[in-house]
């Protein structure tokens, strides 16, 4: 890992010196608000009961556990995407993209380095949100830690895979906000973070299945809430990691041309 570890160290140095506290507060606040509102709605409106429809489509009556896992996963996914997908456009904005591209280091280990640092930071942020959820009484039994760890790893691969083509799009069009928020809206709507995807119309449900987070979330919930062993979540894990690998491969193919477009747009004389 001649490039990944130095890149992870570089990002740690920079993050410790200029930690984006506003991002952190904003992200944790969103997660806390999601769980808090779900708590209020569940008790004040639902009277502590879920509908038969939710029970059938979501496969659980533990609405708060369902929402907490979804909110944690959404927080994890958005933060990871923000770190990894925006790595290169940030280099471009800071004027260091060309010095990166001049070096013989490959893109994948560079992005893995960014991803490793992002993973550790994001896990800490998600932990703060989960601590709040547990404090208000949400139960996350996770009886098989191995299944849960495998699910987290698969979701990590999936989010990393999704971030790479997004990075290529960002440096191609020279824009990050519209690109990232389009993905975030799509993920939030289609992947089942706060409600079961089965409640969506069929075309949207199929579209959601094309995003690896949908199967990753199923595996996460099964492992965290439903006492599922590794064997039971394995099909979803494979779909999640496999789709993530497909997005990753596509992204790596796109990155080279995208980088040249970015350099070209950077100026020629």
């Amino acid at each position: 890992m001649p490039t990944a570890l130095p890149t992870m160290r570089r990002n740690w140095l920079v993050t410790l010196r200029a930690y984006p506290w506003t991002y952190f507060i904003g992200t944790v606040a969103t997660g806390v608000l999601t769980v808090g509102l779900a708590y209020l709605a569940f008790h004040a409106i639902g009277g502590g009961q879920v509908s038969a429809g939710f029970l059938a489509d979501g496969g659980t009556g533990d609405y708060l556990g369902y929402v907490t896992v979804g909110a944690a996963a959404l927080m994890f996914a958005t933060r990871m995407v923000l770190w990894v997908a925006k790595a290169q456009i940030t280099e471009q904005r800071e004027g260091t993209l060309e010095s990166q591209l001049l070096a013989p280091a490959r893109r994948l280990p560079y992005l893995v380095g960014v991803g490793l640092q992002a993973f550790t930071t994001t896990v800490a942020e998600v932990a703060v949100m989960l601590a709040f959820a547990i404090a208000i009484g949400v139960r996350l039994p996770a009886p098989d830690p191995l299944a849960l760890l495998c699910a987290i790893a698969a979701v990590g691969v999936a989010v990393f895979g999704l971030s790479v083509p997004l990075s290529a799009i960002m440096i191609t069009v020279g824009e990050a906000h519209i690109t990232q928020n389009t993905l975030f809206v799509g993920m939030a709507l289609l992947c089942g973070f706060t409600f079961p995807p089965a409640m969506l119309p069929d075309p949207l449900r199929w579209l959601g299945e094309a995003l690896p987070l949908t199967s990753g979330l199923r595996a996460l919930r099964d492992a965290a809430l439903h006492h599922a062993p590794v064997g039971a979540v394995l099909p979803d894990l494979l779909i999640c990691a496999g789709l993530g690998a497909v997005y990753l491969a596509a992204g790596l193919r796109l990155l080279g041309p995208a980088e040249r477009i970015a350099v070209q747009r950077g100026g020629a004389a």
Binding site: V14, T96, L102, A103, P104, A105
Partner: peptide
């Protein structure tokens, strides 16, 4: 090869001079 362009960009502002050189040295293995 290597390229040195005019202007003060192409290095990381939130790293020290030594850290910058260490990082780029790693990228060149």
């Amino acid at each position: 090869i290597n390229l040195i362009a005019g202007g003060e960009r192409m290095v990381y502002a939130r790293m020290t001079g030594r850290e910058n050189l260490w990082y780029f040295g790693q990228l060149y293995d």
